[in-house]
């Protein structure tokens, strides 16, 4: 079976859950730049990012049957898998310095891809957030760091790190605007 571009993300996942490699090929074509881009943003090394991205797709292939559309969009599900693997990868290689500023700058930048379906309301909120709050949020959410690790990296007390994560995420949540999330 060949897949036309019009097939939804969810349809491809159903095909993958049934073991259809054509569905998987279409899925990889559709998301490889997003997955590799996030992996590279987190780990900072193209070779390691490629390993992470390959593993993320393999995990999506094996667990396609577990995808629940009520929980998350397909792209969010896939990028969460990617983030988890990227975090594991950089934790295994402690020698690699983490540069949250690089990722923060990348997250704040405008996308020029017309097919991009990211959350622009959130990008605007991230731009308005003071950097001393945005960096801890990015370290926690994208790098999976604990508040204690963030405090050590940023050279701030643990309580201050926790407060900045809370205030930062709470302000971004205000950008969401609605209360029923």
């Amino acid at each position: 079976m060949t897949f036309a571009v019009a097939l939804s993300d969810e349809s491809l996942i159903v095909g993958m859950a049934l073991g259809d490699t054509d569905a998987m090929a279409a899925f990889v074509r559709r998301f490889q730049a997003r997955v590799f881009g996030l992996a590279l943003s987190v780990v900072g090394d193209p070779g390691l990012a490629e390993e992470v991205a390959q593993d993320a797709f393999m995990r999506a292939w094996r667990h396609a049957g577990d995808y629940d559309p009520r929980r998350a969009r397909v792209v969010t599900w896939l990028l969460t898998i990617t983030r988890n693997l990227a975090v594991d990868a950089i934790r295994l290689r402690r020698d690699r310095p983490v540069d949250p500023q690089r990722l923060l700058v990348a997250l704040r930048e405008e996308m020029d891809d017309p097919g991009y379906d990211g959350a622009e309301w959130l990008r605007a909120g991230l731009r308005e957030l003071p950097t001393d709050q945005a960096r801890p949020v990015v370290l926690a959410v994208a790098y999976g760091w604990t508040a204690k690790e963030i405090a050590e990296l940023e050279g701030i007390p643990l309580g201050t790190a926790k407060t900045r994560i809370r205030r930062g995420l709470a302000r971004l949540r205000q950008a969401l605007g609605v209360t029923d999330g």
Binding site: L38, V42, T82, R83, A106, G118, L122, V141, L176
Partner: peptide, 17 residues
């Protein structure tokens, strides 16, 4: 709502071929 915000942050990462 907070979890939605955290999840969506990942979608802001730039696409790279």
């Amino acid at each position: 709502a907070l979890s939605h915000v955290a999840d969506e942050l990942l979608t802001l990462a730039p696409a790279v071929t």
